[in-house]
Design a protein around this nucleic acid. Structure first.
Length: 347
DNA sequence: AATCCGGGGTG
DNA sequence: CACCCAGGATT
């Protein structure tokens, strides 16, 4: 076994966190935890994992649920395609795999929402198969260990770091190796202020020896943020009109208030003119505004008071405030209701 | 290969 | 403010 592998395994046995999904070999529960934890910190995902396990103890329970209920449980976690794909994949397991969770890397990866990382994680954690995981932690640990400047957000980098990890994992307890390297990245080899004095790889780590830890990993692209202007409308404080978002953009199949989107800020006069023409309603005043920051866009949201319900469009559903908890809402709408409507009970 | 998809925490 | 988090699908 490589020094690398043995060192991090010994470190892991002494330093691992006790997490609920580490106490099971049930592939359904491991899959559920991995989907929740995609691009999500352990501390943020943990309560969602417990909620889902409680509501859907078996994959069949998830497959039999309504998508709206699944999205509702996911509310606030973001990247809602994960919830839609999770639900879809549960039905794949019931129909294409006769209710038995697939047990090979190839079959696992057929599931919607499961890519290379998640298939490798399930294959190793649930079935002890030697597939190396490469997540953000692994990129960081290995790029520093080897001071490899290949950009991790390139297809070449993805192949290279996968090969590095696969070369190190070995056949003996691959699950432990995968857990160990990710845990090391999460607890010691952190993006900023890595705790190199506690690192079992310190003596062999190329970046440590060159004091260049913070130069790794290398990324080639920068995400650029685009500005968007969302105008939402409320006609009374006790009843809301909402609609289900369609199309392929943000918050698909989630619910929102009646929306007018623009590429520039709108004045009260702009809004009065538009709502009069579109809905034959009269806008009275701006209630409040929020800036909602996402990784790739900055939403400038204004909430406007109108004098009456919209009656000329059929897609709007009218609900009482105490019924709205049944509808999955983006965090932006959820926050608005929390802070402006007394009767909005938040779970 | 590039772009899109949330929300929250950190320094 | 920039960066990142147990990434994947779509184009």
């Amino acid at each position: 076994m490589h020094d690398f592998s043995l060192s991090i395994r010994l470190w892991y046995r002494q330093n691992k966190r006790n997490l609920p999904w580490r106490e099971t070999k049930n592939p359904y529960l491991i899959w559920l935890s991995e989907i929740i934890l995609q691009q999500t910190r352990v501390i943020q995902g943990k309560s969602y994992y417990l909620k889902f396990v409680n509501r859907y103890p078996e994959i069949e329970d998830l497959a039999n649920a309504k998508e709206q209920e699944v999205l509702n449980l996911w509310q606030g976690l973001g990247y809602y395609s994960r919830a839609r794909n999770l639900h879809f994949a549960s039905k794949q397991v019931m129909e294409e795999f006769s209710g038995k969770f697939p047990s090979t890397y190839k079959d696992i990866k057929q599931l919607k929402g499961v890519g290379d990382y998640t298939a490798s994680a399930i294959a190793s954690f649930a079935f002890d198969l030697p597939h190396a995981v490469v997540d953000g932690n692994v990129y960081r640990v290995l790029s520093r260990y080897y001071t490899d400047e290949t950009p991790i957000d390139s297809s070449q980098g993805q192949k290279l770091f996968k090969a590095y990890a696969q070369d190190l994992i070995g056949n003996e307890d691959p699950a432990e190796f995968n857990q160990a390297i990710m845990e090391l990245g999460a607890l010691v080899c952190t993006p900023k202020n890595p705790d190199c004095e506690s690192c079992p790889l310190q003596e062999q780590c190329s970046a440590y020896l060159k004091s260049s830890q913070l130069d790794f990993p290398v990324k080639s692209k920068k995400t650029k943020v685009t500005n968007k202007y969302f105008n939402f409308f409320i006609s009374s404080s006790n009843q809301l009109q909402i609609e289900k978002r369609k199309g392929k953009g943000i918050w698909q199949n989630m619910f929102q208030l009646p929306l007018i989107e623009s590429d520039k800020p709108l004045t009260l006069n702009d809004v009065k003119s538009i709502t009069k023409k579109k809905w034959n309603t009269k806008t009275q005043n701006k209630i409040t505004e929020y800036q909602h920051i996402l990784s790739h866009q900055k939403i400038h949201a204004s909430f406007w008071k109108v004098d009456s319900l919209i009656t000329n469009e059929s897609e709007y559903i009218t609900v009482n405030l105490d019924e709205i908890r049944d509808y999955p809402l983006p965090r932006l709408i959820d926050r608005y209701l929390e802070e402006n409507h007394e009767a909005y009970g938040n779970s």
